[in-house]
Nucleic acid binder design. Structure first.
Lengths: 119, 119
DNA sequence: TAAACATATGAATAAATGTTCATATATAGA
DNA sequence: TCTATATATGAACATTTATTCATATGTTTA
């Protein structure tokens, strides 16, 4: 039989005092958005593989393409994403372009993630 | 004018020795996939906001819905995602369900990400 | 300058994902 | 048992996103 449908949380907020405190400590929306954008970058196994590969040192696009099961084009597209987020940098040497990690944050973020998984 | 198109990396791999080393140190594909899944969770500002809110302590679904600009349904869906990834846990108290962070990894992953953004 | 190679990029496509709406389920109280 | 409230869930939809294909750009060497 049908039952009445109620909108949620009619009694105002259930814990207004907790909510007030949380609200005041929360990072601004814009910052949360940027942070989400950053983690989104790490949320793809192709990009993760590239980052892990670069932990050992610089590699060129062909090396990376040879390492992964995707086309050179796909690698190149993903390198651009990583470059735009300042997670990797590059240098040119003739026809070849060498990519490497931008800083040590990448390694630390990867490790924290791995730790969580490995339990 | 048209120029000939060449497939990439014809000369075998450019740096075979580097590639060999990288290949041997790379985490297995399955693990990279799992790690990507984890970071994917952090790659959404709604979920990030929930996680940051829970840093201060437990909150019920209505509290969280009140905090965000989305429906109770959306919050509930996201809570399930977070629950499935073992990032949050919950306890029931009558009609109300209180959610809280599962462990301290969440906080550390968030901090590492923030550090990168804040430069 | 023409050919060859390394890398980048635009368009198209398929798959994944977040939100809402409608409604189901669980619990408490009358 | 009936009603009200808190939370969960399935379906539909719109948006994002990763990949491939075709081709463009940049660099070296003949």
């Amino acid at each position: 039989m049908r039952r009445e449908i109620a909108p949620c949380c009619q009694e105002q907020q259930i814990h207004p005092e907790a909510l007030e405190k949380v609200r005041s400590l929360l990072p601004p929306d814009e910052r949360l958005y940027d942070l989400a954008e950053l983690f989104k970058i790490f949320g793809d196994s192709t990009r993760l593989k590239i980052l892990y590969a670069l932990l050992e040192g610089e590699l060129c696009v062909c090396d990376l393409a040879g390492l992964m099961a995707v086309t050179q084009s796909a690698v190149s597209h993903q390198l651009r994403v990583l470059k735009n987020s300042k997670l990797i940098k590059f240098r040119r040497e003739g026809k070849t372009i060498y990519y490497s990690l931008a800083d040590s944050h990448v390694e630390r973020i990867l490790s924290q993630g791995m730790e969580h998984i490995e339990e």
